[in-house]
Each structure stands twice: as structure tokens, then as C-alpha cells.
Amino acid sequence: MSAIETKLAELGVTLPDAPAPAANYVPYVIAGDMVYVSGQISADADGMIKGKLGDDMDAEAGAQAAKACAISLLAQLKAACDGDIDRLVRVVKLVGFVNSTADFGDQPKVINGASDFMVAALGDKGRHARSAVSAASLPFGVAVEIEAIFQIA
């Protein structure tokens, strides 16, 4: 087991198989030493995590949805690295979209679910630049979608 997967196991997380694309795009693109991962929607073993922040979901539940996105992002990274996730040099940037009402303003708290998880799982390699923005709706009614840029060796 890789060092990163060992740390994930300590956190109670096993990476799932990388989710298949839901439309006409590829799950990731490698350009030089950078991996650009397409947006991963909030989903776990029970299915899609749906909801609208500020309506039927609070920031804490949204943060859990964002953590689920982060797990999928790492699964895609592992696939991009032919199974060797320890090739990760660092998380460069996360861009988080939050399905929220017009008056909901805690998008950063929601996306912290992904950011906090990346740092807990990866240490300093997990520290990253980030955007957290509101969206009037997201595909399939999911609560959160996050895309990522990783640097690999």
C-alpha cells in the first residue's frame, strides 16, 4: 500500500475506483507534470449527495459533500498516475462549486470540507490555492462539484 493510501486508511478512507465521466469529456488530462481533474460531483457509496445549501442542506452537511468530492478527486489522480498516487508532488488548486440559494454566503465553509481533508490526508502536499463559488444549480441536483489541479513527479 502506498504512503498516501496508508494515511487515508488511518483516516478511515479507502479510495474507490475513479468515477466514469457523466458526459462528453475525459476525467483528467495530463500536461507535463500537471494533472487537471474534471469536476467531481458529491457522491459516496450510497449514491449522489443532493441538496441546495441554504435551503435543505446546512454548511456542515455541505462540507461532508465536499469531502466526498475530494475523495473522488484523489481516486482520479490515482488513475491518472497508473495506480501510483505517491507520484503526487502537491495539490495546486481546487475550484469548488456550491449548489446554493442566492442568500447563502458560506461557500468557503462548505469547500473547507475538501480543503481540510486534503491537508489531513496529504500534509503540506495538500495545501493549495482555491476558489469557492455559488451556483444556482449543479448537475443531477448534487450539492457540490469540485475540480482540481495536481502536480506529479
Rank of each mutant, 00 (worst) to 15 (best):
S2G: 05
S2F: 14
I4Y: 03
E5Y: 12
A9D: 05
G12D: 02
T14I: 00
L15Y: 06
P16Y: 05
P19A: 03
A20S: 12
A22S: 09
A23D: 13
A23V: 02
Y25N: 02
V26G: 08
P27V: 00
P27C: 01
P27G: 06
I30Q: 10
A31F: 10
G32K: 02
G32D: 06
G32W: 11
V35S: 01
V35W: 11
V37R: 00
V37Q: 01
S38M: 04
S38R: 04
Q40D: 08
S42F: 06
S42V: 01
G47P: 05
G47V: 02
G47Q: 02
M48F: 15
K50I: 05
K52I: 12
D56L: 08
M57C: 04
A59S: 11
E60D: 11
A63D: 03
Q64L: 13
Q64H: 07
Q64N: 12
A65S: 04
K67T: 09
A70N: 08
L73C: 15
L74T: 07
K78I: 04
A79F: 10
A79L: 15
A80P: 13
C81F: 13
D84V: 09
I85S: 10
I85R: 01
D86I: 12
R87Y: 11
L88W: 04
L88P: 11
R90D: 06
V91T: 12
V92C: 04
V95T: 07
G96T: 02
V98W: 15
T101A: 13
A102M: 08
D103C: 06
F104V: 00
F104S: 00
F104R: 00
G105A: 05
Q107I: 00
P108R: 02
K109H: 03
V110S: 09
G113N: 09
A114P: 14
A114N: 12
S115R: 14
S115L: 13
F117Q: 05
M118H: 11
A121R: 01
A121L: 07
L122W: 04
G123C: 05
G123Q: 03
D124G: 08
K125C: 12
G126R: 01
G126F: 09
H128V: 04
R130W: 15
R130A: 15
S131R: 05
A132I: 03
S134D: 12
A135F: 15
F140W: 04
V142A: 09
E145D: 12
E145G: 07
E147S: 15
A148M: 11
F150D: 00
I152T: 12
I152N: 07
A153P: 03
